[in-house]
Write a protein that binds this DNA or RNA. Structure first.
Length: 215
DNA sequence: CTCCCGATAT
DNA sequence: ATATCAGGAG
């Protein structure tokens, strides 16, 4: 069941009060470091990523240095984030592409970001919104997907379709904010296993109120 | 669609 | 023991 426009704007209004100024919990000091941190955050908590990035960035702070890194050394450092073979290859290859094709700079547009290794729409949207303050879409991760589905903002589960639904239903000026706000709501309240509906400020207008299942 | 994969909560 | 964690490549 999809929600009507009025309910959607009501949900947005309430969540905006709960999460007025959200941003990523990932630690970084440059666009490159944010990009690497987001790649590492796949199927892994931000807290875990933040345990390894200080070590990683102390040794390989720039694309130039990361591009020459030894793969096994990277794997050792990032191992606890999971998927470490693929992630190590992704961040080193991405660093190489950045130094060779982008003058060592992280591109500020979706088209170029998608040329990097281990970077698809979700990662690109996080870098675009959190660092460049640009909005070419809505960040859709597992939390945004779940919150959007449960609240009736989408009937889809495929991330690309969820993103299209959100872009269609939310005014563009809310895109940047919504992605982060839904992530925080999904973490703190509307979590996958045991949603805290009794603590949720939109529980009364949520069609999935009380439904414990994930999607 | 499957595979990648360790840490943590339940 | 199992589900889940700011997904992406083949």
């Amino acid at each position: 069941m999809l929600l009507k426009k009025e309910k959607i704007s009501k949900i947005v209004k309430i969540l905006r009060k709960d999460y007025p100024d959200t941003k990523t919990a990932l630690g970084y000091e440059s666009a490159f470091q944010l990009l690497v941190a987001v790649i590492l955050s796949a199927q892994c908590t931000d807290a875990r990523v933040n345990m390894v990035t200080p070590v990683l960035f102390a040794k390989y702070p720039t694309p130039q240095k990361m591009a020459k890194a030894n793969l096994e050394d990277i794997e050792t450092i990032i191992k606890s984030t999971g998927f470490y073979h693929a992630k190590a290859k992704s961040i080193v290859t991405t660093a190489q592409i950045l130094t060779e094709d982008f003058n060592g700079e992280v591109p500020d547009n979706m088209n170029d970001l998608l040329k990097l290794r281990g970077v698809a729409r979700k990662t690109a949207n996080v870098v675009l919104s959190d660092f460049f303050k640009k909005t070419e879409g809505v960040v859709v991760d597992t939390h945004v997907k779940r919150v959007s589905y449960r609240t009736g903002l989408t009937n889809n589960t495929a991330p690309v379709k969820v993103e299209l639904d959100l872009m269609k239903k939310l005014p563009k000026q809310d895109w940047l904010w919504a992605g982060n706000a839904f992530v925080w709501h999904g973490r703190k309240v509307c979590d996958a296993r045991k949603p805290k509906c009794s603590l949720c400020s939109i529980t009364k207008i949520c069609p999935k109120n009380g439904v414990k299942n994930s999607i």
